[in-house]
């Protein structure tokens, strides 16, 4: 069997913590490709270069990309219908 060429979605925790104050790897997302629901930590993450590409474990469509330049980060949520983010009361 081939070695896995991706990491699980927990690999997003560090890079996304630059943008979000909450840990969004525990957020529930819905894949725009197949409608699968799950936490971001379940995504399959390719990269980190030239950018992080997180794909749905169900249909392999791209859910989000994160490109980190020297001055800006680009977060593209192209394949995510919504994110339900737990907020502490």
């Amino acid at each position: 069997m081939d070695q896995l060429d991706y990491q699980d979605g927990n690999a997003l925790a560090g890079p996304l913590s630059e943008i979000f104050t909450l840990d969004v790897t525990t957020a529930h997302g819905t894949c725009a490709g197949c409608g699968r629901r799950g936490v971001l930590a379940e995504l399959r993450v390719y990269g980190p270069e030239p950018g992080l590409v997180a794909r749905c474990p169900g249909c392999e469509e791209v859910v989000l990309t994160l490109v980190r330049g020297p001055k800006d980060a680009w977060l593209d949520l192209r394949g995510s219908v919504s994110l339900r983010i737990p907020i502490a009361e």
Binding site: P50, G51, T65, V67, G69, D72, A73, W74, D76, R78
Partner: peptide, 21 residues
Amino acid sequence: FWETAGYHNYGDPWREQRYQG
């Protein structure tokens, strides 16, 4: 794919066109 995700639209290495802008 990368051009909509933050990378430069043309990408000339001699002009160091890496990212948008």
